[in-house]
């Protein structure tokens, strides 16, 4: 596979996942706000902080007004990580490698792009209840995954997209967990209160983990949620699961047997995956949740750079790419 094509497919996977996660985050936060008491309603700042784009946000906004945040996260094309930017870039990458995609995949993605564009023209962020838009984006992207799942051959291209998708998801799950760190409770006494409980529940819901968590853990308590979302071996959005899948994709790409490593990307990936494999929730709490998650994000970025060096680093790409994770 051409290095340029592999690069585009990898970023196609990342941007699609990013768009889907943003849709989830906003949707769930909106729901949460409906349940909160009046004085605590407008807690949109933590969401902006979790995306890592706080500085960019503050450059043009004074307050964390709901509409402004939704606009910033979903529709602002100046924000390189916004939903609309992610969808545009996913489509742009798809356009560049269209000959490698199935017709249905391309057409669905193209349709989703036009849908988001249209919503932007209609100023959806000003709607009293924009949730149906985010619902729809989510299901359109899931449909896209479904189409790909049943039409795309499991060759190199497939694994580059999986690699991008799972790395992005690992990063996003860690970030949404970090939101909890930033959300304010009125006082420390509220830890373990119904309000606290609401937050944890919303957090689980934003990664569609609520029901599964309930079945596996029963009671909602912070260390259980952290363990579940970071270390769980079976849940497809836990950080560990994503890293494991991403690692497998790397092995498929290099054609190695799945032990040790054959290049620097596999080495970094293996290191991080095994760290999580052997950590338990007490290790996380001892390190500090926020610090632990931040470290994870740095490592994931590092792995992405290693992938770039090993597989994509050819002469200057023929189109400029923005590949930074904010």
């Amino acid at each position: 596979m051409l290095s340029r094509v592999a690069n585009s497919i990898y970023w196609l996977g990342r941007y699609l996942e990013r768009a889907e996660n943003y849709a989830r985050f906003i949707d769930v936060n909106f729901n949460l706000m409906l349940d909160l008491p009046g004085d605590l309603k407008e807690q949109w700042e933590p969401l902006v902080m979790a995306t890592g784009d706080k500085a960019l946000y503050q450059a043009s906004n004074q307050s964390y007004d709901m509409q402004e945040v939704i606009y910033f996260l979903a529709f602002n094309e100046e924000n390189p990580n916004s939903l609309i930017s992610s969808i545009s870039k996913a489509r742009e990458n798809a356009r560049m490698v269209r000959e490698n995609l199935s017709k249905e995949t391309w057409e669905k993605l193209n349709e989703t792009y036009h849908f988001v564009k249209k919503a932007s023209e209609n100023k959806t962020w000003k709607k009293e209840d924009p949730r149906s838009f985010f619902e729809s984006v989510k299901s359109q992207i899931l449909l896209l995954y479904g189409i790909a799942d049943s039409t795309v051959a499991r060759t190199e291209g497939w694994y580059f997209r999986q690699l991008g998708q799972y790395l992005e998801r690992a990063d996003k799950t860690s970030r949404i967990l970090d939101v909890k760190y930033h959300i304010l409770l009125p006082s420390p006494k509220e830890v373990g209160s119904p309000l606290d409980f609401l937050h944890w529940m919303a957090l689980l819901k934003s990664v569609t983990a609520f029901n599964t968590y309930r079945r596996l853990y029963g009671n909602i308590d912070p260390s259980g949620v952290v363990e579940f979302l970071v270390l769980n071996k079976y849940f497809p959005r836990s950080v560990f699961f994503c890293l494991k899948e991403a690692e497998q994709s790397l092995f498929k790409i290099s054609g190695t047997n799945g032990y040790g490593y054959s290049n620097s990307a596999e080495k970094s990936m293996g290191e991080l995956r095994s760290k999580l494999e052997f950590d338990d929730v007490n290790d996380i709490i001892a390190t500090g949740l926020h610090e632990y998650l931040e470290h994870l994000q740095v490592k994931i970025n590092h792995i992405s750079n290693q992938i770039n060096d090993n597989y994509f680093q050819i002469k200057d790409n023929f189109v400029s790419q923005t590949m930074e994770q904010g």
């Binding site: 290095s3 340029r4 000959e99 002469k315 790409n317 023929f318």
Partner: peptide
């Protein structure tokens, strides 16, 4: 089912 290439590839 051919490769689409640019000069830089």
């Amino acid at each position: 089912g051919a490769e689409l290439v640019s000069g830089l590839d």
